[in-house]
């Protein structure tokens, strides 16, 4: 396989990860990831044809319960941790341009 972790790839992944990396951080991230992937490629030695990907250890799927409100109104308590709040709501920068 050719080189996967190019500068463009690091830029792309940092968009997915919502991280702003400095140039030196990008360089380090590229090197780290390259090295990890080289190691992870060891998995290709294993023949996994026909093996189902195992997301969960136990055969439980949808776990349903009654949709009943149990936790009461904890608005004030939740907002205490907000970086910015106003009138009982979270405050965020403008998201829609005029």
């Amino acid at each position: 396989m050719g080189k996967i972790i190019t500068d463009e790839m690091i830029d792309y992944v940092s968009i997915l990860a919502k991280l702003n990396l400095s140039d030196s951080e990008k360089k380090a991230a590229g090197k780290d990831m390259e090295r990890m992937l080289e190691y992870i490629d060891m998995l290709n030695e294993l023949n996994t044809d026909g093996v189902e990907p195992m997301t969960h250890i136990f055969p439980i799927s949808n776990v349903f319960r009654e949709d009943r409100e149990e936790n009461g109104d904890s608005r004030e308590k939740m907002l205490e941790n907000a970086p910015e709040a106003r009138d009982g709501m979270y405050r965020v920068p403008k998201t829609v341009e005029q």
Partner: peptide, 14 residues
């Protein structure tokens, strides 16, 4: 190539 491969490996380990 990576995520599903790892989950398949997990099944074999199990």
């Amino acid at each position: 190539a990576y995520y599903l491969k790892a989950l398949r490996t997990k099944a074999l380990i199990r």
